[in-house]
Design a protein around this nucleic acid. Structure first.
Length: 254
DNA sequence: CGTATTGTTATATA
DNA sequence: TTATATAACAATAC
C-alpha cells in the first residue's frame, strides 16, 4: 500500500501522536525489523517533528533519527498503551501518554536508528520529493534519461515517492502509454505528464492513501473486467518495468 | 498446490 | 555508464 500519500498519512499520525513526547522504551517485538542502530540511542529522548521524503518517514529523536520504510504492507499507528496490540506490530515506541506502533505484515522495509549524517547511507540518494518538483525541474530530470516512462517515474533517485499505482495513474491521466520510450516523448506530452503528476499527488495527499476513486484508474483497475473510466475500452494489464501495470490501450499512446 | 502482491535491492546481462 | 530483467525478501489471499 504505502506510496507517497500513505506515508504522508503516517507522518500525520506521528505528528499528532508521538511528536514532542519522550520515548520511555523501544520494544522490539520482532527485532529483525530493526535494520540498523540501537534503541538505547533514542530511549529517554524526545521525538521531534517528523519529515517525509518520498516513501521514507524521518523522525528526529535527540541527536538521532528514526528512519522508517513501510515496504508494501507497513503502517504506523498511535494508540493507548493499554489497548491490545496487533499481531503484526513489530516495533513499538512506548511514550508517555501513548505508544507508536510500527506494523508490517510482510516484513519488507523496516526501522533504522541512525546518527547525524547517516541518513543517506540508509535511504540511498533520493530525488526530490514528488510534491517539490516544479515544471522546470521535471523536464530537467527527464532530459538525459533513456528507457521507458514507467521505469523512470518509479525510480526513487529521479523523483521520490511515486509507486506502482501512482505512476499508472499519472500515465493514464496524461494519456501516455507507460511503455513509451522517454526520448520519443514530445514536449507537449511531457508537459501533460508533469500536470498529471502534480494533480495526482496533490489530490492524493489529503486522503492519506492512494485514493480509489470513481473516474480514476485506481477505481477501475481491480475489477474482473476493468474498463477505462474515460473511454470505456477494456484496460490492458501486463508487466512493465517489473510491475503489474494497467493502462488503456485506446487512449494512452506511445 | 500454484499464482499474485501497492517496495527495494543485489546480481546478471545487454 | 545506463538500463533492463530476474530473483529474493515474507506473509498472506485467492
Amino acid at each position: 500500500m504505502p506510496e507517497l500519500p500513505d506515508v504522508e498519512g503516517f507522518r500525520r499520525v506521528f505528528a499528532s501522536g508521538a511528536a514532542g513526547r519522550r520515548i520511555e522504551r523501544v520494544e522490539l517485538l520482532d527485532r529483525s525489523l530493526l535494520r540498523g542502530g540501537r534503541p538505547a540511542a533514542v530511549e529517554r529522548e524526545r521525538f521531534g517533528d517528523p519529515l517525509r521524503h518520498g516513501k521514507w518517514l524521518i523522525a528526529p529523536a535527540g541527536d538521532s533519527e528514526v528512519l522508517m520504510h513501510f515496504g508494501m504492507t507497513g503502517l504506523l499507528d498511535w494508540a493507548s498503551r493499554r489497548s491490545v496490540r496487533h499481531p503484526h506490530d513489530r516495533i513499538v515506541f512506548v511514550c508517555r501518554g501513548g505508544e507508536l506502533r510500527y506494523r508490517n505484515m510482510r516484513k519488507f522495509g523496516g526501522v533504522w536508528i541512525v546518527g547525524p549524517g547517516e541518513r543517506e547511507a540508509v535511504t540511498g540518494a533520493l530525488g526530490p520529493d514528488a510534491t517539490q518538483v516544479d515544471r522546470e525541474r521535471f523536464h530537467a530530470l527527464l532530459a538525459g534519461r533513456r528507457g521507458g516512462l514507467k521505469a523512470a517515474l518509479m525510480d526513487q533517485r529521479l523523483v521520490a515517492g511515486l509507486g506502482n499505482l501512482m505512476v499508472d495513474e499519472i500515465a493514464w491521466r496524461a494519456r501516455v502509454d507507460p511503455r513509451a520510450p522517454l526520448k520519443r516523448l514530445s514536449k507537449r506530452r511531457r508537459e501533460r505528464l508533469f500536470d498529471a503528476m502534480d494533480e495526482v499527488v496533490r489530490e492524493s495527499l489529503p486522503t492519506g492513501r492512494v485514493p480509489t476513486l470513481e473516474g480514476w484508474l485506481t477505481g477501475a483497475r481491480d475489477g474482473p473486467q476493468p474498463t477505462c473510466p474515460r473511454c470505456g475500452a477494456h484496460l490492458r494489464k501486463a508487466t512493465v518495468a517489473g510491475r503489474t501495470t494497467a493502462w488503456c490501450p485506446r487512449c494512452q499512446r506511445r
